Amino acid sequence: MFGLTRARRTAAALAASVAAAATALLTAPSAVAAPEPVVGGTTTTTAAYPFVMQITDSSGNQFCGGTLVAARKVVTAAHCVVGESAGSVRVVGGRTYLNGTDGTVGKVSRIWIHPDYTDATSGDDVAVLTLSASMPYTAAKYVSSTDTGVYTAGTTARILGWGTTSESGGSSNQLRTATVPIVSDAGCGTSYGSDFVASDMVCAGYSSGGVDTCQGDSGGPLLIGGVLAGITSWGNGCAEAGHPGVYTRLTTFSSLVTAQVNS
């Protein structure tokens, strides 16, 4: 799988993580390669999506996305923060442009990673960051464990991020968004075989490709009906025909997320 699939964390951040923590799971042969901005989308703003957060290193370099679900809680992908410490990560809200200086930079006081997480293609790709101080932005609602019907094949979902705009391209300086249809579990299984874990994952994208999340979009939201229903996780390349993006199926982990939000 290495080199064929990729978690959607930025290559620069992956390289830094490898240098800082050679034992981090992202460097293991079973892990997926580095992530990508929204391919085939359009520019948007954090004013339109105030709950979309940048996740950066301590120097302000964005490597993943996240979703504010409470004033001090951000949902992201486990593969974004495995091997990181609370002091090595920052969360930036209200900043549409990567090179901007506006918005709010939040320090992280605690990182919770699903205890069963090993790598993105094995599932359990969910993490919750607790911030040292509240973010002054509207939080997103997220699915409950009983909202499983939101993943009906063909349902329109929205993706967002600052990732690369093509499989081998550079990151987008401005937040981007696109819509993609939910893919049936059977269709996703055809694309990814045993790497697709239906209980943990959901796919979204067009059979012809062309629109997808990419490197740098990892951890960002998959919205259905304006509600957080998935987390950008992994996929085979970016926007390739027959290989939709794979997202963490948040209904499966909603109760665990709520426990963290309330802690």
Score class of each variant (00 low, 15 high):
A19S: 14
A19Q: 13
A20C: 05
A21F: 07
A22G: 15
A22N: 13
A22L: 13
T23N: 00
A24T: 12
L26W: 11
A28C: 10
A28E: 15
S30I: 11
A31R: 03
A34K: 02
P35Q: 10
E36W: 09
E36L: 11
V38P: 14
V39Y: 01
G40M: 01
G41Q: 02
T42A: 08
T44W: 07
T45A: 02
T45F: 06
A47S: 14
A47T: 14
Y49V: 04
Y49S: 03
P50N: 07
V52G: 09
M53D: 06
M53L: 13
Q54R: 11
I55W: 06
T56Q: 13
T56W: 00
T56N: 07
D57I: 04
S58L: 12
S58W: 00
S59G: 15
S59D: 14
N61F: 14
F63I: 13
F63E: 07
F63T: 04
G65P: 10
G66M: 06
T67V: 12
T67E: 02
V69S: 01
V69A: 06
A70Y: 08
A70C: 00
T76R: 01
T76L: 00
A77E: 07
A77N: 07
A77I: 03
A78G: 10
A78I: 11
A78D: 15
A78F: 13
H79Q: 05
C80A: 14
C80H: 10
C80Q: 06
V81L: 03
G83L: 09
G83W: 04
E84Y: 02
S85C: 12
G87K: 04
S88F: 04
V89W: 06
V91F: 08
V91N: 10
V91H: 08
V91A: 11
V92N: 07
V92C: 05
G93Q: 05
G94A: 01
R95D: 09
T96E: 06
T96P: 02
Y97M: 09
L98S: 13
G100F: 06
T101E: 07
D102M: 01
G103K: 03
G106V: 02
G106R: 11
K107G: 15
V108I: 12
V108M: 08
S109I: 04
R110E: 09
I111L: 10
I111M: 02
W112Y: 12
H114L: 14
H114W: 15
P115F: 07
P115I: 01
D116H: 05
D116F: 15
D116C: 01
D116N: 13
T118I: 11
D119L: 02
D124C: 04
D125T: 00
A127I: 01
A127N: 02
T130K: 01
S134C: 10
M135T: 03
P136W: 14
P136A: 00
P136Y: 15
Y137I: 03
Y137M: 00
T138E: 12
K141A: 15
Y142K: 05
Y142T: 07
Y142D: 04
S144L: 11
S145I: 09
S145P: 05
S145F: 10
T146H: 06
D147P: 00
T148M: 10
V150P: 01
Y151F: 15
A153M: 08
T155A: 13
T155D: 12
T156L: 05
